[in-house]
Design a protein around this nucleic acid. Structure first.
Length: 222
DNA sequence: GACCAGGCACATC
DNA sequence: GATGTGCATGGT
């Protein structure tokens, strides 16, 4: 018997409760946050966002108008600040060209088309693009990440060498195609990953460890 | 001090 | 096409 992603979702939602990701933030802030959080802890991203807000730069046109020497110090706390200042401006340039800087307006567009446009931007890869589609534009697109792969692979539910798209399709096919479910599942998996599923395993107490192995649908996590 | 974080692009073989 | 490396801050 093979585990179903919907079961994992139910268990985690029950055990951990809703994670409340990106509620109340504007689509623009989500987009900027999605770039800043690349391989970085969210706490660091918040400082950078605060700096941008205080500098009145949480605006596509004003952010684009900044020179690297002006933008880099603002986002410095989020790490990789030289790379990310370029990536951020690439994304903002697209937003201005595409929708006159109005992120809300992107919601009218088709998710597949938007995804391809986003992936064409230097600095936007699959996870960043999908995070924007799901959390900023409320498209029913599942975000998978390093934690998702680790959790699924360590239980023997999937091979460790699947690529992003394979993992995404595999999980999405086992879930109701709802924005709310995709939103919450990814956030829950990040919560599990942060606490229990680090690169060096110390999985004791993980909600999945106690529930799934005894039902015979998972190998013990390692 | 080592390890880790809600990746991605680019170089090299 | 697979594998390796640079990017950088801040928390544990």
């Amino acid at each position: 018997m093979r585990v179903h992603a919907a079961q994992v979702y139910e268990i985690l939602l029950d055990k951990l409760g809703p994670q409340g990701w990106w509620p109340g933030d504007t689509p623009l802030e989500v987009m900027i946050g999605a770039v800043l959080v690349q391989n970085t802890a969210w706490a660091n991203v918040e400082r950078a966002l605060d700096n941008l807000r205080n500098a009145d730069a949480l605006d596509p046109h004003r952010l684009l108008a900044l020179s690297p020497a002006e933008l880099e110090p603002l986002i410095r706390p989020a790490g990789y600040f030289r790379v990310k200042s370029r990536r951020l401006q690439n994304l903002m340039r697209w937003l201005v060209d595409r929708a006159e800087g109005d992120a809300e307006r992107l919601r009218e567009s088709n998710a597949q088309a938007l995804r391809e446009e986003l992936l064409a931007i230097n600095g936007v890869g699959p996870e960043t693009a999908d995070s924007i589609l799901l959390y900023a534009l409320e498209k029913p697109v599942l975000v998978v990440d390093a934690y998702t792969l680790r959790i699924w692979a360590r239980h023997g539910w999937i091979d460790y060498d699947v690529d992003y798209h394979q993992l995404q399709e595999h999980l999405a096919s086992e879930l109701p195609q709802e924005v709310g479910v995709f939103n919450e599942l990814h956030a829950l998996l990040v919560a599990v990953g942060k606490k229990w599923c680090k690169p060096k395993p110390h999985c004791a107490g993980c909600p999945l460890e106690q529930l799934l192995p005894e039902s015979g649908i998972a190998e013990p996590c390692w």
